[in-house]
Simulated scan of single mutants.
Amino acid sequence: MFFFYKNSRQDRVGEGVTRRVLAHGGKMMCVEVVFEQGAIGPVHTHPHEQLTYVRSGAFIFTIGSEQREVRAGDSLYKKPHIPHGCVCLESGVLVDIFTPQREEFL
């Protein structure tokens, strides 16, 4: 299947945060999340495995009890049900891969 960026929908999901589903199928989903500087991704949990690639910007990420600064080129893994969230230090873009798909995003 092919998914074209120009045909994808951008949703505002928080103050200074937008989300766009880039592709989905089978048990996988790829999502782009754009953050303005200072925006917060609140700590939350979900039953999905999640990989995050930092395409641009800088963030402070909390995963479980660990907190680290990450920048463009870094990646993160979040196992199911682990609390995680972030604060955007420099405007940036995250690319998230979920399995299974986040049906609520569709």
Score class of each variant (00 low, 15 high):
D96A: 03
R55T: 12
L51P: 01
R71F: 05
I63P: 07
K6G: 09
P80I: 13
F105Y: 15
M1L: 14
M1C: 12
S56N: 12
H24R: 04
Q10G: 00
V70W: 00
R20C: 12
V34D: 02
E32H: 05
R55W: 09
R68A: 02
D74T: 06
Q67F: 00
S8N: 13
N7Q: 10
F59Q: 02
I82G: 04
R20W: 06
V43G: 14
Q10F: 04
V87S: 10
F35M: 06
Q101S: 11
P47C: 04
V21H: 01
D11L: 01
F61P: 01
A72I: 09
P83F: 13
Y5P: 02
R68W: 07
G64C: 11
G38R: 10
I63S: 09
P42Y: 10
E66D: 12
R9T: 08
E69I: 13
L51V: 05
E69W: 01
G41S: 08
H81K: 15
M28F: 11
C88Y: 14
V43L: 15
G16S: 08
R19G: 06
F61Q: 00
I82H: 09
Q37G: 15
L51A: 15
L76G: 02
A39P: 03
D96S: 04
P47R: 11
L94P: 02
G25I: 06
V93W: 06
R102K: 14
V17W: 03
H44R: 09
I40M: 10
P42T: 10
G41M: 06
L106M: 09
K27Y: 09
S65E: 13
E103T: 12
Q101E: 14
N7K: 10
T45P: 03
G73D: 05
L89A: 15
V13R: 00
P80V: 11
M29D: 11
Y77E: 06
F61T: 07
R71C: 02
T99E: 13
M1S: 15
G85T: 06
F4C: 09
R102M: 11
P100F: 08
L51T: 00
S8H: 08
V33N: 05
F2G: 13
T18H: 00
L94C: 06
C88H: 12
E15W: 13
F105V: 14
R102F: 06
M29C: 07
V87D: 06
F35Q: 01
C88T: 15
H48I: 09
S75M: 11
F98C: 09
K79P: 13
G26Y: 11
G25R: 01
D96K: 04
R102H: 08
Q37L: 11
R9G: 00
L106H: 10
I60T: 14
H24A: 13
